[in-house]
Design a binder for these strands. Structure first.
Lengths: 175, 175
DNA sequence: GGAGTCATGTAAGTTGTTACATGATTCT
DNA sequence: AGAATCATGTAACAACTTACATGACTCC
């Protein structure tokens, strides 16, 4: 599945929740999918224009505001996209790339790298914690969305555990 | 830090271990850094050509074979690159993007997604397990390299735990 | 001699980011 | 009225992938 199709998926998915402006699509992707997905600003408007030309979305007036709404054809397209096989982007972990060559970098600077990483992971963990305190629900959509949060929480926890190990081992190296 | 600089880092890092051909650099990045870093084929040779023009690497003959070796200037450059601040690429998890819209996709297909993901993670976990059984060492470089393996193992484990949770919750949804 | 791997590169096309440009609406 | 945010787009650039092209060497 091409990357363009994945942008289509993210945009159509956002509009499948409710009609909204391009600006709001951008905000929804950043704020709601942001922990596991990203679309840059310059991708979203051209995608909306193309989806409109393809009849997958249409411009509507909701009260005083303009918005894009998904059409039946768009919803069909969304389901197709969800079923297509996909490639995950190749891994690129800049922290591990540096740590792998840690002997060139030196003990102190490696510890600084690890402490910076810890700060970032702790911020992410705090963001997840703020979202976790909601009551159970029987809404299936909500259940799926919570699973993506659970993923984020588990990964943040595993990273913190690893950082504990890594800082201890690096600190114990003879300088 | 620009992406080009990160390619330089990966290539210089590989050559900092020992001199090798461009072909071997490619294999080393794929096989040794592959769990957390990726450079596509078309990036490596142009980078080597540029690094040679900059005096960071030089072509040498080792026995009957040709190879690239890092120069003193290249090693200095590598240390600079390791110290530069870096951006991590934006997150893009194609599985979570689909699962987030799981209500559109349906229970059975979501379970299929999760089972496919489990297969991939189990393969990764098996690859880590095969590398984990080596005796302790006092070599600092080896210690750093093992930390990157430990990261991979911990993340694979956390993903499997999450998959257990996710499959159970999705299976329990009323269809 | 043929298959497979080692080896080096180029070119075309795709994708993605960033900065710029512009104007409307809403809040204080 | 001025500031902030909402809103829509474009253009230039940077990065990345993939397919193609070529040839040497080695093992069977």
């Amino acid at each position: 599945m091409s990357r363009a199709a994945q942008t289509d998926l993210a945009v159509l998915g956002a509009l499948s929740i409710e009609p909204m402006s391009g600006y709001a699509v951008r905000a929804a992707i950043r704020d709601t999918l942001g922990h596991f997905w990203h679309e840059s600003f310059g991708q979203i408007y051209p995608t909306l224009t193309r989806l409109e030309a393809e009849g997958a979305v249409t411009r509507v007036e909701t009260g005083a505001r303009k918005a894009f709404a998904i059409t039946d054809r768009g919803r069909t397209r969304l389901r197709e996209l969800l079923r297509e096989p996909f490639d995950s982007p190749p891994p690129r972990n800049a922290l591990l790339l540096r740590l792998f060559f840690g002997a060139e970098l030196g003990q102190e600077e490696c510890l600084a790298l690890l402490r910076d990483a810890r700060t970032r992971v702790e911020e992410a963990a705090a963001a997840y914690a703020g979202l976790a305190e909601e009551p159970p629900t029987s809404d299936a959509g909500e259940t799926y969305r919570r699973l993506t949060l659970s993923y984020g929480r588990r990964m943040a926890r595993a990273q913190l555990d690893w950082l504990d190990e890594a800082e201890a081992i690096v600190a114990a190296l003879c300088p």
